[in-house]
């Protein structure tokens, strides 16, 4: 049974003051790990001040778990230090690669879905979990292309990695929607093949619909198709700790809080047996 910690928001710099002054009714916050891998100053001060009042989860974008470069243990040491400082509920990153040849793309680049990539990820996730001394969550990314040397669907790829490495899944509902549109598969097909016992957290976010394809921008409100998919996800996965992820074009805090409360309301409609 996965721990349910309620409904959260991504903590963004422009909202620190609001959170500290008003202590809004939010169950938890997700913070970007890399933003706090600094020596000190205001970022760390605010993080600790908010941690005094709220549970946190750490979400990273630079582990580059799928890269063929050696694992970056300097990064992992910084992450471990941050974990010791803030005692998060859990930590997460992405099923992707971000850097190779020591060059960082600062993007979440897709893996080919084949046995070579599965074994590569399983080996590295196991090393990371051993080093961190805990399970780590990995998130499905939005993708815009499929490699010719992919041999399976994304959900089969993820399920096999989770089974072999004993990691958990951060399921981004928006990313499922975006990728399903970009690759022409059914998002429901994706979800029904994921084992509910492996899903620790949901992300909800917005995107930019360009017609022929969809781009995961995190700069819009959560749109109706993603809300609908979330409602379906709840039926399959039951109650899962859920947060609204907004990285750009960031609105007033209360607007994000309203979206979070909307997610909570939708979850109330889930039949008790599923929850």
């Amino acid at each position: 049974m996965n721990k349910f910690i309620g409904y959260g928001l991504g903590l963004r710099t422009v909202h620190y003051q609001h959170v500290l002054e008003h202590r809004p009714d939010v169950d938890w916050f997700e913070v970007h790990s890399e933003n706090f891998m600094v020596a000190g100053g205001k970022p760390k001060y605010n993080l600790h001040a908010i941690r005094e009042h709220y549970p946190l989860v750490l979400h990273g974008v630079s582990m580059s778990i799928g890269s063929t470069d050696p694992l970056d243990f300097d990064y992992l040491k910084k992450l471990k230090t941050l974990v010791a400082e803030v005692q998060p509920e859990w930590i997460s990153d992405h099923f992707c690669w971000t850097s190779v040849g020591k060059v960082n793309s600062h993007d979440l680049l897709p893996m080919p879905y084949n046995e070579e990539a599965i074994q590569h990820l399983v080996d590295r996730i196991s090393q990371v979990q051993d080093f961190m001394g805990r399970q780590v969550l990995f998130e499905n990314v939005s993708s815009y292309l499929t490699y010719k040397n992919s041999e399976m669907e994304e959900w089969e790829f993820i399920s096999e990695i989770v089974k072999r490495s004993d990691c958990k899944i951060l399921l981004d509902i928006n990313n499922i929607y975006v990728s399903s549109r970009n690759h022409g598969y059914s998002p429901h097909e994706f979800m029904k093949h994921i084992d509910p016992s492996c899903v620790q957290q949901f992300h909800l976010a917005g995107h930019e619909d360009c017609g022929e394809y969809v781009i995961d921008t995190h700069d819009h409100d959560v749109p109706d198709p993603v809300w609908e998919l979330y409602a379906d996800a709840l039926k399959h996965f039951g109650l899962v700790s859920t947060m609204i992820e907004r990285d750009d074009n960031i609105p007033e805090f209360v607007e994000l809080q309203a979206e979070m409360n909307h997610a909570k309301e939708i979850a109330k409609t889930v039949p008790p047996q599923a929850a």
Binding site: V100, P112, Y147
Partner: peptide, 29 residues
């Protein structure tokens, strides 16, 4: 996997890259 990632990175860096050979045509995009 290693070749794929280096070719992809070459594409991002505007260097000569053959990554396109390993990407599928899908949905008319």
């Amino acid at each position: 996997l290693s070749e794929l990632q280096h070719e992809f990175m070459n594409h991002l860096l505007d260097k000569k890259s053959v990554i396109a050979k390993n990407v599928m045509e899908q949905n008319g995009v």
